[in-house]
């Protein structure tokens, strides 16, 4: 089983002052899979991503990524292992240009010394160009990132992850606050970048989920309520109850 799965979360738990945000959770993601995680507010979706990327430390359980236990690694080591994570509100460097944003996120030059003597290579320039095309920001490369629209900021952050070429990409509500055309463009973007990597997406927007998702996991009160194809999950009675009940 280990070989097929890129991410194995087993018996994971975390509590804040006694409140169990994630409770004995088991969660598996295959290589090259795009998984959507949905659930009502407070279900523990963002906390799950926080745990995987090391922002929050687990109280119990294991998170194995390519058979490596992530719970013992620090945040930057988890990134080096191949996990990239986008935050819910776009976090980009507003005082730098789009190009500088992408360049800073590229691997290489990650220690003090190598960043002091870092020089941009032709290959990196090509890569930045390529990413910029993918995220629809070629014309904005030399614009200060603070001037981008909200949707463009979301794309830029996705681009900053892509340039790291992570094997597992985690996106927290990538289309929140986007217009309909932007949302469609994002769905196309996700369908393109899911090649050769596993992607976990947290999303509220059901139409968007249908556009991108094959397998869906429903979280509720820190536990998995249902898992499977979208149609099956949508007709699950417990899921309907949780969503209508709120």
């Amino acid at each position: 089983m280990s070989n097929a799965m890129i991410l194995e979360v087993e018996d994971l738990g975390v509590s804040f002052d006694g409140f169990k945000a994630i409770d004995a959770l088991n969660f598996y993601v295959e290589r090259n899979e795009l998984r959507v995680v949905i659930g009502p507010n407070g279900a523990g979706k963002t906390t799950l991503l926080d745990l995987i990327c090391g922002k929050t430390r687990a109280t119990s359980g294991k998170i194995k990524f390519k058979n490596k236990d992530l719970t013992k690694l620090s945040e930057h080591q988890i990134v080096h292992a191949g996990v990239g994570r986008k935050f819910q509100t776009p976090s980009i460097y507003e005082n730098l240009t789009v190009r500088q944003n992408l360049e800073l996120s590229s691997p290489g030059g990650r220690t003090v010394l190598s960043s002091l003597f870092f020089r941009r290579t032709a290959r990196l320039n090509d890569r930045i160009q390529e990413i910029a095309e993918t995220i629809y920001l070629v014309d904005e490369l030399d614009l200060s990132a603070g001037l981008l629209s909200h949707g463009q900021k979301q794309w830029l952050e996705i681009g900053m992850l892509l340039i790291q070429d992570p094997e597992l990409l985690m996106l927290d509500e990538p289309v929140a606050g986007m217009s309909v055309p932007e949302r469609e463009a994002t769905a196309a973007l996700l369908n393109r970048i899911k090649e050769n990597r596993a992607v976990i997406v947290i999303e509220h927007d059901m139409d968007f989920v249908k556009d991108i998702g094959r397998k869906v996991t429903v979280l509720h009160q820190g536990k998995i309520l249902a898992e499977g194809p979208m149609e099956k999950v949508q007709s699950d009675e417990r899921v309907i109850e949780v969503y209508l009940g709120h």
Binding site: C53, K55, S74, E75, H76, V79, H80, G84, R85, F87, S91, I92, Y93, E94, N95, L96, L104, S105, P107, R110, T111, E157, M160, Q164
Partner: peptide
């Protein structure tokens, strides 16, 4: 500058 503005993003871009 990046750390001053978005420390978490820098951290989760693989920097210590």
């Amino acid at each position: 500058i990046a750390m001053r503005d978005q420390e978490d993003r820098v951290r989760f871009s693989g920097y210590d």
